[in-house]
Design a protein around this nucleic acid. Structure first.
Length: 222
DNA sequence: GGATGATCATAT
DNA sequence: ATATGATCATCC
């Protein structure tokens, strides 16, 4: 359910983000009529979904950037008292069967990372959700330097995927971008390419950004 | 303590 | 079943 209309311009969006900087999640939830969960164990996406409502994201669960008219992706990211990201950032599902024109340029990862509105959220774990504070939002445009590294990571990983080497992919691969499970649990199954080029069941995976990159982004170093 | 692998809720 | 939103929890 949309609680805010979609932003009509970048200025509009950034004005909204600037307005809520410094607010606690408790204040935001109250203003937008949202119930604050006790903890996030059973509500892992709650913070991100709250910010979607507040800022007027309109993509729903479609595989496109959150602010559809502006082509901007929204990411909330938990940070510690020093401003460092505390978690990796999920970007997109890994296309395990590939697709016709497999290329970085047309990939969902690139599509989502071209323009990202990062909204840091201070506090995690033991800190009561209502008291966690919204930090200063940052609109980030992927630079050619960062893109070069992401493209290398993506191509290396997708090569494994398409050559049936899914079983050999670990979270240790990739400088900025890596692949990890993205599933309800470890028994979840979808279909991927097997060692013999056959289609066979495998765990769903997602592309995630390492904190090595997001830390630099939040520090406005890239 | 940080990173990798596992997991939870919801919408369609 | 698969996309969205992520954080949890274990291992090193």
């Amino acid at each position: 359910m949309l609680l805010s209309a979609p932003p009509t311009s970048i200025a509009d969006l950034m004005h909204r983000v600037d307005t809520i900087a410094g607010w606690t999640l408790g204040e935001l939830a109250a203003k937008f009529g949202q119930v604050i969960p006790e903890n996030l164990l059973h509500h892992k996406g709650w913070v991100g979904q709250l910010l979607e409502k507040v800022l007027g994201a309109d993509a729903g669960n479609r595989a496109i950037p959150d602010f559809t008219a502006l082509h901007i992706e929204l990411k909330t990211i938990p940070i510690n008292s020093q401003g460092k990201p505390q978690e990796s950032t999920y970007i997109a599902v890994v296309p395990l069967l590939g697709y016709p024109d497999l290329s970085w340029k047309t990939s969902e990862v690139r599509g989502k990372l071209r323009q990202v509105l990062w909204v840091p959220i201070e506090g995690r774990g033991d800190k009561p959700i209502a008291r966690r504070r919204v930090g200063q939002g940052l609109l980030w445009f992927m630079s050619p330097q960062v893109e070069a590294i992401l493209q290398t990571d993506w191509q290396e990983l997708m090569e494994y995927v398409l050559l049936g080497k899914l079983a050999h992919i670990t979270g240790r691969m990739g400088q900025y971008l890596h692949i990890r499970p993205k599933a309800a649990n470890s028994r979840s199954l979808t279909y991927g390419i097997g060692p013999e080029g056959d289609i066979h069941p495998t765990l769903p995976r997602g592309f995630y950004l390492r904190t090595q990159l997001t830390e630099q982004i939040l520090a406005q170093k890239c």
